[in-house]
Design a binder for these strands. Sequence first.
DNA 1: AAGCCGGGGAA
DNA 2: TTCCCAGGCTT
Length: 354
Amino acid sequence: MTDFAVRLLDWFDQQGRKDLPWQQDITPYRVWVSEVMLQQTQVPIVIPYYARFMARFPTINSLAVATEDEVLHEWTGLGYYARARNLHATAKEIMSAFNGDFPDTLEALVSLRGIGRSTAGAIIAICTGERATILDANVKRLLSRCFAIDGLPGSSATERLLWEKAEQLTPAERVSDYTQAIMDLGAMICTRTSPDCAVCPFTEDCIARVTRSINRYPARRPAKSLPVKTTTMLVVQNPEGAVLLQKRPRNGLWGGLWGFPECELNGLEQFLVQHHLSLKQQNHLSGFRHSFTHFHLDIELIQVLVMDAEPCVAEPNSVCWYDPHDPAKIGLTRPVSKIMGELAETTQQTLGIN
DNA sequence: AAGCCGGGGAA
DNA sequence: TTCCCAGGCTT
């Protein structure tokens, strides 16, 4: 065992986290779900989602037989919705192609949708205790500082260096604890801003620390200005107060979720004709900006009150009336969940004036 | 190799 | 505001 691993494990025994929800009653299924939820998502955000998800889908079979709408319903608000679709698809595949038994080799795991090299390594290390390596953002930040790896984040050269170092440091014993330990040190001590070097077991060895250049590691990714896009979303309500939602394409932004219909700037009339709806009243609601990692979306909102009618559409599976008082268990885009919450407070008055 | 995919917390 | 997070997939 490397000196690095010995000291890290010693720190973990005293300071590491042992009470996280997915550290209790460890099964491959529970670890898998947690690892996928934790991709690009921090622990405090995941905890409530994980509790609800495991309550609703306690076994891999319960997940496999669920509808995709309901899986996305439990994922609503968590982001990166391809994770939920891949999770669902992989649950089905494990039930059908693996007899319901979770694969326990790196190769088999990586072949599954939504499981890459790092997530596969985490599952192996935590569930089997076999030697396997992870490389998540915590580990990358820690190794970048300790060993002064300052290449561009995401570049293949940097990735190769980091994987090489991570593999080299991974011990053959206590692999599960080591895996948790290196993530804990990164998340709790070697944080992105103002790391607590005073209590870090590697404070004397960390090259970034010793050379007083912590803020140079990991290297900043080059800033780029985000494009701004605009759209108009329609909050179409029938006399009962139900709201018209459209299912979004499986691929792309908010894939598989249900969102407000969108139209061109003056495309409301065309929209109404298209869906055989007759306008009763329209109001401009205050718009807002929704920001993504790769662009800003400026959203205009038009509340459209219509006569009681079934929307006539080519594909009935892609449109629904969403009743806030009896909400369907489907995945909602952030604008929908946000506006539904706000609408609940004012909809009574709005409908009352008609 | 680079782009795409969310939402929220931190500063 | 900007930056980034228990990454992986697509092009």
